[in-house]
């Protein structure tokens, strides 16, 4: 039902001959959200946002709670509709509209890490990481083993769990669980990783580990992270976007943003005058 609404709302855009398609490779942006409006019922959560997500960089999205930053993130891999939302506008991934293709394929390419660590409770650590592979039809055992090990290493969790891969994922600490979820996301080899306040429920040490991890990951992945913690945004990101009540107020490289914001509202927020 939600899908139908999306299609109805989507404005027909101008016709471009297929021959121009190769040119998309020259676009440095991995993803582009264009004229994006997101709704929950009649409530508009995102108002006409246009934003590019640069390839193999970390983009941080900040803003006071309720500003729509999570909704925006979730519209980038079609999770917004899972929660029953609707939208208009386009989101391009390598130049192709993700709302024009199979959501399953989109989500495989654009992975997501959630605010609360949520390992599959009935599965072991190993099976958690392997779940995405197996359920996407990868049957080759050696390959699965190899990818699980690689993903756990990428998530900086391998050394801690390599002797207890058969234990339940729920037996890990909160920080370890979150890194397990990151490993699980990396295992299906996404191109973009979306992180929705991944460290907000964690202690400072675990948070530091996650931040370190994000820094390492951007060599191979395009990362967008939603955070309510400005210091965190300043530490991990290359670019920062500021959202306020559903609108994109300002986006710039992180240094400029935090030292010389152009908009008054951004400055107020960054200096802690509201929000």
């Amino acid at each position: 039902m939600e899908l139908a609404t999306i299609e109805e709302l989507e404005a027909p855009t101008m016709e471009i001959p297929q021959a121009t398609q190769p040119e998309i490779k020259t676009i440095p942006e991995k993803m582009i959200a264009q004229n994006l409006n997101c709704f929950f019922g009649k409530t508009q959560a995102i108002k006409n946002v246009t934003l590019s997500i640069p390839t193999q960089k970390v983009l941080a999205i900040i803003g006071p709670s309720g500003c729509g930053k999570s909704t925006f993130l979730r519209s980038l891999n079609r999770m917004h509709e899972v929660a029953g939302g609707t939208m208009t506008g386009t989101v391009l991934l390598d130049g192709l509209n993700i709302y024009d293709s199979d959501p399953v394929v989109v989500r495989r390419r654009v992975g997501m890490v959630f605010q609360k660590a949520n390992p599959f409770p009935m599965m072991s650590i190993f099976d958690n990481v392997a779940a995405g592979l197996r359920l996407n039809g990868l049957g080759d055992k050696n390959k699965v083993n190899e990818i699980v090990e690689r993903s756990l290493k990428q998530a900086a969790l391998w050394d801690e769990v390599k002797d207890s891969l058969n234990k339940s994922g729920m037996s890990l600490s909160g920080g370890q669980q979150q890194r397990l979820c990151i490993a699980r996301t990396l295992a299906v080899d996404p191109e973009v990783v979306l992180m929705d306040e991944p460290a907000s429920a964690l202690d400072p040490i675990s948070t530091a580990k996650i931040e370190e991890l994000i820094y390492d990951l951007k060599k191979n992945y395009t990362i967008t992270i939603v955070t309510h913690n400005m210091q965190q945004a300043a530490r991990v990101s290359d670019y920062t976007a500021f959202f306020y009540v559903g609108e994109l107020i300002e986006v710039d490289d992180t240094k400029t943003m935090f030292t010389a914001p152009r908009k008054k509202r951004t400055e107020d927020y960054i200096t802690g005058r509201f929000g």
Binding site: V104, R109, M112, N118, P121, L135, N136, R184, V188
Partner: peptide
């Protein structure tokens, strides 16, 4: 919990397999 479904869908696992 709904989060379980979301995290599975976010892995690119189809809804029916989820």
């Amino acid at each position: 919990p709904h989060t379980l479904r979301e995290s599975s869908l976010a892995l690119g696992i189809p809804s029916w397999k989820t």
